[in-house]
Design a protein around this nucleic acid. Structure first.
Lengths: 233, 233, 233, 233
DNA sequence: AATGAATGAGTCTTCATTCAT
DNA sequence: TATGAATGAAGACTCATTCAT
């Protein structure tokens, strides 16, 4: 919650940037557009954000904050077993990507940067302005936090029997995360296939989640009514 | 295999472009760089490719061609059941993304374009040069072809019992494709988590594939030795 | 008279552009030349004028403004009959074309554009940047204004008896305008004919004006000493 | 009449160039367009014409040849007095400009070049390729020839009494020429004025010619039925 | 805090012309 | 004569960023 005038204006710029990045993309969005839509001068934008990359990193940070709060929210909710948590997380995550294209794009982009960041050679190719941004280090941490929470959910599920105990929590959670990321990216192509392939966006999501659950579910559930259905009661 | 001089030079430019796009990225790569590294004049580049976007689409086409040939190769290989095929496909796909970062990036990028292309509003935001490229329509088809092949693999698996028959082939295949896409994207973050989360790249891949198989495998295999293992004989 | 700093600079650029367009022509004049000679950066030129065509239209506008002020000035001068006004207008117009080659060229060019603009097919051939210029519509009006003033002069002359009353004011004025335009264009060739054709620029102008007057003059003047003729003694 | 294969192809290129210059303008017409539309290779164009300017000069030459033949034709026609000849010439000239926009534009352009050519300073600004063209000198002569013929027509008229004898043939003819040139240029604007100024293209031409005749006609015709006026009844 | 004029490096793209074949 | 691949100079235009006020 921004309180000071400064924080308010900073947030305003950020919101405008998100809107524009979403509509036109990062490259096509000019700093002047941001300023104009925010009703301020071009110069002032640079008072609040060091440069365009910094602004983008700030947007990315906001995106990750949002994502992390989703992770947190679900993790601290009571009365759910691990699989249920994961299911809810995946559902919420998908909604998040759908409702905040830009956020998701920023997160994916940051993951790409992390990839370069881990490679001595590719590291050189990263725009120095990105590395200089005060948000960069924080982002590395937040991403990590999300991972940790997700892994704890899986661990929980393995303990409460909703998830197969022989799985390895870390690998499993990252695999789930991968599924969600890929899901978003494939939304476009799936939406396009209208001719021979009978697959509709509205069908994919439940099927996708069901598959994910099948992948995880513990042996206990084989005889009991399915966790997934249970969550619908 | 290019034969005519024209095709040879065209391929030369393409290869150089791939190299540069991989190293420096699309935006940071100047047409002049491409020309210089190819040992030709700037103008000639425009003789073979209408513009930078067209060149990029050509690169994307090459990437998709490569990908499709992987799909095809595995699909026509004999003596495998459906799950085995999918497993091999996923393995090969992952290798493909690892060895051809640029190719994969181009494919992911194209999927993003498809997403915009399906949305009346976002469609406006696509660079017209991309839509004008002679490769654009072909790319839509090739992507579709890959999807079809993958779906056939799953269908095969459902028939031969290696994949649960109650699954829906289309949804299932796209879910698997999503997993692979996300896997690549998460490689970066996973590689970064060195501190608390004990997950190493070398561990992730087999675990990832195992999970994918668990998600799919048919009831028959419950009593029999696992398909996956079978393939190791 | 420009007042604000912005108007001053805008005028500066315009003046430089006129100088350069006059000397080197529109095509041969680079925006960088304009900037350099104006002592500003290339970018600033684009801050004041959307593009080169817009700058050219601005120059054209200035030319037409100048021309219109000549029309106006003469029209509101007292103590002249219509023929005298037309005579003065033609004289002033010729001086104008001579002293401002560029202005006249811009005006002639614009007339050519108007021609294309009136033809559904040729209209397509007009550089869109020209049509987009904020000056374009204004120019159409200013041209029209000049025509109206000239026609009023002829009308006046027809009423005061200095111009034959049976003439049609519109046709007559446009015919005079045509004469002037052609006069300027033929200055070049006339200046060149040095060998056999004995025609010197200094002789042409008075003869030209006399002919124009002969074409127009009313019956009254046949008996009275003509203001116009008087000036030729 | 082109006979040899060489002349035939040369004429073909010329015709195509005229068509394209007419439609798209000189600058917008690419040598490749010309070649393509002529069904030959780009290189071959340069075999027949030294360069683009040379091609343009060749077009100009063709235009002037055509114009001169109009002058000649009318001049050698029998049974006309001088004024009639001039009237026919003006009529034919106007038709010529209307039917051959490009030709007329080329001629006007050449007149502009002549103007620069006569000025020591402006001369520098002429594209050297134009001066180098083999057609350039010929064009100067042809223009001159046209002038001479026209002057002879006026002289004739002065002798046969159809044109006022006190006029000076040279000045008079060039004034008429000026009228015609201006007429063409003003066609565009005149076509545009639809609102308040009641002037229609179809009305202008006869009025224009009538005025021209009034300007010239000898005293004799005042009492006799005039050929020209007769045509207006 | 705020403005917006000013900068200038950066690049794509065009096209007349040449030349090896 | 004829081709068309190859050249490369030329120039318009953009936009992130700065700075005087």
């Amino acid at each position: 919650m921004p309180t000071s005038a400064r924080e308010k204006k900073s947030k305003l710029i950020l919101d405008v940037a998100i809107k524009l990045f979403t509509t036109k993309g990062f490259d096509a969005t000019k700093m002047e557009d941001v300023a104009k839509m925010a009703g301020i001068s071009k110069g002032l934008t640079y008072f609040y954000f060091k440069n365009k990359e910094d602004l983008y990193m700030a947007v990315t940070k906001k995106a990750y904050d949002e994502l992390k709060s989703i992770f947190r929210e679900i993790f601290k909710s009571k009365g759910k077993n691990g699989l249920q948590m994961i299911t809810d997380l995946v559902t919420a995550y998908i909604d998040f990507t759908q409702e905040n294209r830009m956020y998701n794009a920023a997160i994916l982009n940051f993951m790409g940067i992390m990839q370069q960041y881990n490679d001595e050679v590719l590291k050189e190719g990263i725009d120095p302005l990105i590395l200089e941004s005060e948000h960069f280090q924080k982002l590395l941490e937040i991403h990590h936090d999300c991972g940790k929470i997700g892994i704890q959910m899986v661990t929980l599920g393995m303990r409460d029997g909703s998830i197969r105990p022989e799985l390895q929590a870390e690998l499993t959670f990252y695999t789930i995360w991968a599924m969600v990321i890929g899901y978003e990216r494939l939304m476009g192509p799936v939406g396009y296939e209208g001719k021979e392939i009978k697959i509709h966006l509205e069908n994919w999501k439940p099927g996708f989640i069901k598959l994910m659950q099948d992948m995880l579910k513990g042996t206990i559930q084989a005889t009991k009514p399915q966790v997934v259905q249970a969550s619908l009661f």
